[in-house]
Simulated assay, not measured.
Amino acid sequence: MRKSIVNYIVLVLIIGVLVFSSFKSNKTIKANDYFVDDIAINTVEPIETSFDHILPLEKIYKPFSPTLGKSFVGFKEALGFKESRGDYFIVNTYGYLGKYQFGKETLKLIGIHNPVHFLKNPELQEKAFLANAERNKWILRKDIKRFDGKTINGVRITESGILAAAHLAGPGNVKKYLRSLGADGFTDAYGTSIQYYIKKFSGYDTSKVQPNQKAKVTLTA
């Protein structure tokens, strides 16, 4: 009788172990479970979200590009880009210097006698551009008044176009072009004409340029 009881107890224990093992084996640990001291801890399931409605970044964050338009700054930056792509430190094959491609003789007229220093100094180059424009505007003041708004060879004449052409060819050649109604033209060593500059740089606001016969660059310490 005692042996039967022992066998019964053993059988109950075996069944209990099997049931418990079966219960544990049915527990499936997900890929996003992790263990701390052998205890499985479940992380928060990610929520599936569609981002199809969100615009691409390039449509949200457009690169900022200031527009100078037809302002005086726009005028000189456009001219500087045409002359040298805005490079203050370049010298071309004919010896013209800097962002605005000044010749040494022109620099002397506005008070600059050290081309090496000029080439190394962007601020000086900007002052030289304004002084030269003021001098040219004084020389061409009567022609600006006479021809501004008129058309020569199909191109509308404006003050800014005249000043740009004077920067290219000198005020004397621009006078000849205007007074001959385009018959007496000028082309530089690279094939650029007065007419091209008058057209390309038409309509900018150059009212900031004051005509000045004695325009010089003021050097500061």
Rank of each mutant, 00 (worst) to 15 (best):
57 L>Y: 10
92 N>F: 05
62 K>P: 11
50 S>E: 05
107 L>V: 08
120 K>L: 10
80 G>W: 02
154 G>I: 11
46 P>F: 10
141 R>W: 15
54 I>M: 09
147 F>R: 08
47 I>N: 12
135 R>F: 07
78 A>W: 06
50 S>A: 01
157 I>M: 00
178 L>E: 01
52 D>W: 13
46 P>Q: 09
144 I>T: 03
134 E>I: 11
122 P>I: 00
148 D>H: 15
147 F>A: 06
159 E>W: 07
151 T>I: 14
139 I>T: 13
110 I>V: 09
142 K>D: 12
78 A>L: 04
174 V>E: 08
103 G>M: 00
100 Y>C: 01
181 L>H: 14
118 F>L: 09
77 E>F: 05
93 T>V: 15
90 I>C: 09
92 N>E: 02
179 R>G: 05
96 Y>A: 08
131 A>W: 12
106 T>E: 13
162 I>Y: 03
137 K>A: 06
89 F>W: 04
68 L>A: 05
95 G>A: 05
76 K>L: 13
111 G>F: 05
178 L>P: 01
62 K>V: 10
53 H>S: 14
83 E>N: 01
169 A>I: 05
99 K>Q: 03
130 L>Y: 14
136 N>A: 15
59 K>C: 12
146 R>F: 12
90 I>D: 08
111 G>H: 05
97 L>T: 05
164 A>S: 02
164 A>Y: 01
118 F>A: 06
74 G>A: 03
101 Q>R: 03
93 T>C: 15
92 N>S: 02
150 K>W: 13
121 N>E: 03
165 A>Y: 06
90 I>F: 11
134 E>R: 10
72 F>Y: 13
127 K>C: 10
150 K>T: 15
41 I>S: 11
130 L>C: 14
95 G>H: 07
114 N>H: 13
41 I>F: 08
91 V>K: 06
57 L>R: 09
173 N>W: 07
64 F>R: 09
180 S>R: 06
170 G>K: 04
94 Y>G: 09
118 F>K: 09
85 R>M: 08
113 H>R: 11
115 P>N: 03
74 G>I: 02
113 H>N: 13
155 V>K: 03
102 F>D: 01
113 H>V: 15
86 G>I: 00
144 I>H: 05
153 N>Q: 11
65 S>C: 15
154 G>D: 10
153 N>V: 13
